[in-house]
Nucleic acid binder design. Structure first.
Lengths: 355, 355
DNA sequence: TTGTAGGCGTTATCAA
DNA sequence: TTGATAACGCCTACAA
């Protein structure tokens, strides 16, 4: 027999369609899906049956507008191409998925203005943000945080929920490690000048250099990229240092490639230390690196975000993640004969480092 | 106590706030953003100025509810950790941004079931999908495509809008290149068995091998990862081949590292060719690779998606992107003395370093 | 336990 | 060129 199921083909069924068919109010239908405990068992079953016949599914957008909860979160990164952030993303997504959130990804390309725009555009569709290494000024950040929950990764601002990867101790250990091997001068190849991580790592290296009698020379880069690391090679060779501590693995890998292109080998001519541990096994020789559990950092960020959304009181929470110095094959004693092996012939065109 | 910077519960400014400040109707404000051509220049400027001052940004969700368009798209990738997909993502996002779309990112971890779940969950919030190397069975794909517009990347199914990176010619050139250098036996280190790209590349290599008199041996890997490439090294050394064509750069890089760990050097002992061009300059020696413009592939995907959404007739469109064999430093003549240098002592579990 | 009615922020349809 | 006003689909006090 033909049921009297009137379903228009062109339009997706709405709550009203279901209500009409079920001969109940729209509120009842709404409750049948959102708060079934407020309805009688029979009613819930009844409504859901009708809904199923009609192919009704609650409209996510309408619900979001009405409740102000989107069921989404956004992850902002400065460069998804950097394996550290890619891994972070995986951690975020896996946790988000198991917590019923969908994830927007936005790449700010290290650009604060773009970061601002992206946050603003996403704000209405998102219950919260995970901001990885945000470059935004504190003031702007506070503004956004006033509207949407924000969890910061590697930026330390009071009253913000934040996850900090504390590499200081490991960097100190790395310097000590180099000192024990006999290095007397090392370079720190920096990451983004204004990033919290960079400041923290630089300070740790400087302090440890002082303590262990290792002279530290700083090499600035604008962005932590392979190319930037590579570009440091010539300067490193000139610098009289015998070891490099890089801001991250990508830079370290670039440095290694750059050194190789100048005919130097690691660790014979230079010792190299990276950070993140995400590229460490992917280089040859395997990179001595300060390992970070990026995946769990991502998961923790989501947990913290959910935490804060659920209970505002836990905003301001500061979670510190440990790191581990993992010694692999890129660190060794410096060349015995005082000076490092120097492949650049005097007058060679490459020799254009004169300031 | 610290400064009480609790920017408190100020809600985001709405269209009404702007309208009030600008002393115009909400409709006018709406037009100033959505259809400025319907307004006088002065009015647009006026409204936008006020909006900026207030920090107003159109509410994406409300707009979506009103227009029936979500204004979002989703990119699905098998592994965001792979630089190819990371670059793709950047292309997608940049184009999406300039087209007023926000981007969900979902990582299926090469898992078809997860892929299915992710698509289903995202469907309600998205106008369309960009599916990169989808592993889903055709049937399932068709199902999803019935609900939401789908653009495929590197999967060739009739009637689907799709973007194909056609590496066949370049792989043939690569084999020819190797043949001319004098190689007589080469290995193809495969990617995902069922992926379209892998099939295409494998066929091209086999055909070219036939034509140029190069014996091809296939090495299977389950996933295109650095580790998988590395794991092939021992087998490659045993295989009697003198060159490797890898499914992608990540595998190639792994292979190189694996060879190095066995004491072999590239290109002296082995020639290596990768694909994607995204890691090529980041290895040492610089990898000979088949370059793909991932970024523009991402952009093209968005364009195509928008195209199809705007005009259903252009679904089924098949866009083929070219590739380029870029010869760098990992390919050279094989060792003159018939057999390749063979560092593995018979019965030796693992050779350390013999130099 | 269920219904009524107002509102979420925009866009779209008419008028003016 | 601009302004009222009704949708858009759903949720949620407040009532019954």
């Amino acid at each position: 027999m033909e049921e009297k199921i009137v379903k228009s083909v062109d339009r997706a069924p709405t709550i009203s369609d279901v209500a009409r068919q079920a001969k109940v109010s729209r509120a009842t239908v709404s409750r049948a899906f959102g708060q079934p405990h407020l309805l009688s068992r029979e009613m819930v079953a009844h409504v859901r049956a009708i809904a199923e016949r009609l192919g009704y599914v609650p409209n996510h957008t309408a619900r979001a507008l009405s409740t102000g909860k989107a069921g989404n979160l956004a992850l902002l990164v400065p460069d998804i191409t950097n394996p550290f952030f890619a891994s972070l993303m995986r951690g975020v997504q896996s946790k988000a998925l198991s917590t019923q959130y969908a994830t927007f990804l936005a790449d700010s390309d290290e650009n604060p203005d773009l970061e601002d725009v992206l946050i603003a555009k996403l704000a209405a569709q998102v219950d919260g943000f995970i901001l990885a290494s945000p470059r935004l000024p504190k003031k702007t950040l506070l503004q956004h945080a006033g509207r949407r929950v924000c969890v910061l990764i590697n930026r330390d601002i009071p009253n913000f929920a934040r996850i900090l990867v504390d590499g200081a101790k490991s960097y100190e250990q790395a310097v000590e490690h180099l000192a024990r091997l006999g290095h007397r001068a090392a370079a720190y190849v920096s990451g983004p000048r204004l990033s919290w991580s960079n400041g923290q790592r630089l300070r740790a290296v400087l302090a440890a250099g002082m303590r262990y009698g290792v002279k530290i020379i700083q090499f600035a880069t604008d962005r932590p990229t392979f190319e930037a690391g590579e570009a440091c090679a010539a300067g490193l060779i000139e610098s009289g240092t015998t070891a490099v501590l890089a801001y991250d693995d990508l830079l370290a890998q670039g440095v290694m490639a750059g050194l190789a292109r100048h005919g130097l080998s690691v660790p014979e001519d230079f010792s190299v230390v990276g950070c993140d541990g995400v590229l460490a096994t992917r280089t040859y020789p395997p990179l001595t690196s300060i390992a970070i559990d990026c995946h769990s950092a991502g998961e923790k960020a989501v947990e913290l975000l959910v935490d804060v959304m659920h209970d505002k009181s836990s905003s301001g929470k500061r979670i510190v993640l440990p790191t581990d110095l993992v010694i692999r094959a890129t660190t060794a004693k410096p060349r015995p004969v005082g000076r490092a092996y120097h492949p650049l012939m005097p007058g060679s065109p490459k020799q254009t480092k004169s300031e």
